[in-house]
Amino acid sequence: MSTPSRKRLMRDFKRLQHDPPAGISGAPQDNNIMLWNAVIFGPDDTPWDGGTFKLTLQFTEDYPNKPPTVRFVSKMFHPNIYADGSICLDILQNQWSPIYDVAAILTSIQSLLCDPNPNSPANSEAARMYSENRREYNRRVREIVEQSWTAE
């Protein structure tokens, strides 16, 4: 069935195929336009460099009026990412606007990796380490990067 949200998601997909932002890829699952798999590559020249982080995006018929539920499938260590992979990011919650498409969502998550918001910690250990012991924090991030290559 072709609803406004499904039609919009097809256009999101076309844009991501033809004009993908650097370090990002995403596509709907074979038989379900409402559920997407995506990969964010860790930005170059940062501790995240080389990481390939998998996510899922679950959309509802309210998209683009409501944001998708976005979750990391790969194990993460980041001040704003919960243990279950869900993400504490304003544009995915109270600051959502239909002005964002899937490319913009994934780009925002990518920049969150290197630019955490210490004021809304989802992982208090990562948040504490980020502000108090950056060397140890970076070491933990490197571990996560290595795990991202092998984990299923």
């Binding site: 406004p4 919009r8 844009r15 239909p98 002005i99 964002y100």
Partner: peptide, 10 residues
């Protein structure tokens, strides 16, 4: 820099 499809429905 907005893709037209993000606002055209509105």
């Amino acid at each position: 820099g907005h893709a037209e499809f993000t606002f055209e429905d509105f």
